[in-house]
Design a protein around this nucleic acid. Sequence first.
DNA 1: TTGAAAGCGATACCAA
DNA 2: TTGGTATCGCTTTCAA
Lengths: 327, 327
Amino acid sequence: MAKASPVTRNDVAEYAGVSSAVVSYVVNDGPRRVAPETRERVLEAIRVLGYRPNATARALRMGTTQTFGLIVPDSGNPLYAELARAIEKEASARGYVVLQTNAGGDPTVERTKIAELVARRVSAIILATPTEEPELSETDVPVIALNRPVTGATSLIPEYREGARIGVEHLIGHGHERVGLVMGLDLTGWRPERELGWRDALEQAGLPEGPIARGTFTRQGGYEAGRRLLKADRPPAVFVSSDLQAVGVLRALHEARLDVPGDVAVLSFDGTAESEFSWPPLSVIRQPIERIAKDTVARLVDGQTGIEQVTYPTELILRRSCGCGEG
Amino acid sequence: MAKASPVTRNDVAEYAGVSSAVVSYVVNDGPRRVAPETRERVLEAIRVLGYRPNATARALRMGTTQTFGLIVPDSGNPLYAELARAIEKEASARGYVVLQTNAGGDPTVERTKIAELVARRVSAIILATPTEEPELSETDVPVIALNRPVTGATSLIPEYREGARIGVEHLIGHGHERVGLVMGLDLTGWRPERELGWRDALEQAGLPEGPIARGTFTRQGGYEAGRRLLKADRPPAVFVSSDLQAVGVLRALHEARLDVPGDVAVLSFDGTAESEFSWPPLSVIRQPIERIAKDTVARLVDGQTGIEQVTYPTELILRRSCGCGEG
DNA sequence: TTGAAAGCGATACCAA
DNA sequence: TTGGTATCGCTTTCAA
């Protein structure tokens, strides 16, 4: 049995009776031409010895690792899991690989992770964390930020505000004169975009601002916020800032034996797979995760690292929870 | 502003007026002692120049990348997302980083991914895919397989069969004389472990085998299987082989206006976070994901790569869907 | 305590 | 068309 790791290009060269340079030419299809016959001998040697080029050495020599570093708050969160999945898919198709790390919402950890990725010479860093301005100054690794603007980096951002506005507008269209809001804790000064969209729709319809309940960006956080919202002055409709929280809100509603959408209509932001199979299925404002993932990788691979800010329209998906759908 | 990438150890040496060896001694705290004063000069130089050791060069020289390669079928699947999260957490705590890839359930892709990881000289491969025996022979990279036995590798496996048996036994304990089964498609000859556990419990209680419906390991697959199960001879209880499918089954039940657990009791295998917030909350057999992740990383880091097979007991978590819980 | 230098494995230029 | 070789940045042995 051929052992892979220890077999070097020199072993191959020796076996094939050529110089190591020729092996390179064959493996990389260049930069020099190789006589067909020699080429065959080399390929044969590679096969027999089970040679695999050492990507580490290659990276050192070439100065590029063909690797993306991805930082998310929590890859256990379906939204980020789906994002990571989409990015890995695109990256893989282009010969890149992704180093995935979790910052856990802690700016200090985030800084550490960035440093780690830089030390490992990733080709680029994809930042999908919602924390404050990261330290990028000491680095010349390309950075693309998702979900929020970051100075000194390209940012690809869903239209949070407009998406939220459209969603709330839809709820209002169902005839609800009050629309509550379940919102994530405001840590960044950026996430309130969704809250602003909610306000926009209300104002535009001449409606008063419904009750607001805040909680962490988790199912549990949504559950607790939902309970608080019910205890107070229950609104006939609620806009929730994330699917995860919405799932928690649904639970609170079910426990209170309230009908959705009959007693309370619900619509949330994100559009993860989980939202489609909650009960009732959630109407959502869907983030174009795949498109963003695709563009992110394309920009990075093609070296379009000019600093700019690009926004992505969201999509309103109507299911049962808002009063639409087959129910 | 200091540019990080191009700053090498030689730049630091020059700036500090020492040899590059000394910089190494300082950075690595060894293998030679350095005079305190010299040390200070070097640290100062590092600070001023913004030097970051090139992990690529280090890996080449040391022969280890301090990187784990993780292969899962689909990191968008919450079960694998949670597993990946747990592994990343443990790995990170020990200075490792994880390269995460998706095989998408395709053995060919899986082979490609393994080759890619080997080429990149990962320190070890963690295989969490359910496909057939992978090609590991050409490699001397340590491999740990999760979820199934793999010849030539250490395997850490939850007690699928016994866990399923305990779960079904619990359903039977609720007085149900028939327990249906929603099972994943049998692709591997290994996953039916859960099906065997279901049979064990039935046999042990002297009950006939209830109806079986099979579908993909997805929410949609569970939904479709659930519908089929209802059309036929509806059982009063169902054991579902994964949370994801169970969520689909719940949807089918809701659409049929059946009460859970009143009309049909449900219990599933996995215990992902999603199961806790479905409606009603799912009773589950929980896989000890964190323990497995922790042991996996510990074994790899400590070099316990002896080939063995370790099993992990599961945990029965009772919630509302089986008839327990506060409802 | 510090420096010089030999590699780790691959790339690609310059000669031949 | 092919070979020799400098180089990428770092670790570590051996001398000084």
